[in-house]
Structure formats: C-alpha cells, structure tokens
C-alpha cells in the first residue's frame, strides 16, 4: 500500500511540477490570456444585455467597495455570513434606466463585483493553463486524453462562467444574480429563480472539472515515459 501511495504522490507531484514549468515558460502568454478572458467575459455580458433588450446603457454608478466591505465586516458577527455578503458586494454598475414612468426604473444592469471578477480571472487562469498544456510544443498526453481535457475544460468553464454572471433584470427581482443569464437565454423565470441557490455548487463543479481537465492534460502519455 505504501508503495502505491508513493507512486500516486509522485505522479501528482510530477504533474504539478510540469504544470508549473509550462506556465513559467510562457508566463506572459498565460497572464495575458487570463486577463483578456476576464475582459472579454464582461464585454460579452454587456453586449448580451444590449442585444437582448435592444437598448444602450444610459447610466453608471460607482460604489465605495472598500468602505462597504469595512461596514459589512464590522456589522456581521458570523464569518460565513460576512464572506457570503462580501461576495455579492459590487463596485460598479452600468445599466438602462426607463424614464417612461415615474422617476425612472432600472430595467437591466451589469454589476461588477470584485470577488466575482477575481473568480472569472481565476477561471481565465485555468483555461490559459489548459491551453498552454495542450499546445503542440508542450503537449505530453495522448490525443484521446487531450480531447477529453478540452471537452471537460469547456464544460467546467461554462459552469463557472454561468455561475459568475452578475446581471440584474427588473423582472428577476432586480438583484444581480447568475440565473438572470439563464432567464435571458429563455429558461422560465420561475425555474431560473428556483435554481438560484445552486449557484455555489455549479461554481464548485465547474472549477472541479477544470482542475481535473488540467491534471488530465498534464498526464504523460505512457509511450513518452522515457525521461
């Protein structure tokens, strides 16, 4: 048993060393891909809102994130609650205000929440890692494993991307939530709102699958076990 464990640990260690070496070799590409992914992600969300609602944004709001987080920390006794609330704390909002009735109603908006941005950036890092590992010059796994890794990576990325959406729509109770994305894509609002509490699990599933995809891509092809 000890021998088997030692083999597993060594294999995992080897993989991690290989992944780190691959990133180090192409660090700037890795970083630029991740950063670009984050920027593109939010641009796509914005574009999605503009196309879906056929209206350009007409207002922006900036929020004092640091002060707000300080207030949350000071006034929330439970650490778990504090983290959950901070996770939803936004810094910037851009959206469309309908002034046909009363003093105006925010029809839709896109919120930027630092923790969510960080999550999307992390997603970008994982995608970039997988991309670097599967580049022909770095690739060590066989074709089947590479294809599986790409598919799994895509699925994981989709889960995280969906669960990281911070759009709000007045018909979805005007709060920024990931299920607005589902509702906008045509899923019934009731069903979407019913799915809302599952956001954390969708996120975890996505990151889990991505990590497995990366480790799988770092698995050496048996025939290449020469060094």
């Amino acid at each position: 048993m000890e021998k088997i464990s030692a083999i597993v640990v060594r294999t995992m260690g080897e993989k991690l060393i290989f992944i780190a070496a691959t990133i180090r070799k192409d660090f700037w590409s890795w970083f630029v891909i991740s950063f670009s992914f984050t920027a593109i992600y939010y641009m796509v969300l914005m574009l999605g809102l503009i196309i879906r609602f056929d209206s350009l944004p007409n207002y922006v709001n900036a929020y004092g994130w640091i002060d707000n987080v300080r207030t949350i920390i000071q006034s929330t006794p439970s650490i778990t609650d504090t983290l959950i609330i901070i996770n939803d704390e936004w810094i910037f909002e851009v959206g469309f205000m309908n002034y046909d009735f009363g003093t105006g109603i925010s029809e839709w908006s896109l919120f930027l929440a630092p923790t969510k941005i960080l999550g999307v950036f992390l997603l970008g890092l994982l995608i970039a890692t997988n991309y670097l590992l599967l580049r022909p010059k770095n690739r060590v796994c066989n074709d089947v494993r590479a294809r599986t890794s790409v598919t799994a990576s895509g699925f994981g990325a989709l889960c995280v991307a969906l669960a990281s959406i911070t759009m709000s729509w007045v018909v979805c109770c005007s709060t920024p939530t990931w299920v607005v994305g589902l509702a906008m894509m045509g899923l019934g609002v009731s069903t979407s709102l019913w799915l809302e509490p599952m956001g954390v699990w969708v996120n975890l599933l996505g990151f889990g699958v991505l990590l497995i995809a990366i480790l799988s891509a770092a698995e050496r092809n048996r025939s290449s076990f020469t060094d």
Binding site: T71, I72, E89, S168, C173, S174, T175
Partner: peptide, 16 residues
C-alpha cells in the same frame, strides 16, 4: 429609492 424590494434586502444585508 429602488424599483423593487429585492435590492433593498441585499442592501440591508450589507448594512447599507
């Protein structure tokens, strides 16, 4: 001022 109750709850959670 808000257009619905949902965001009011969120802001109350953050103690704003």
């Amino acid at each position: 001022d808000y257009s619905s109750g949902g965001p009011i709850t969120n802001q109350m959670m953050a103690n704003k």
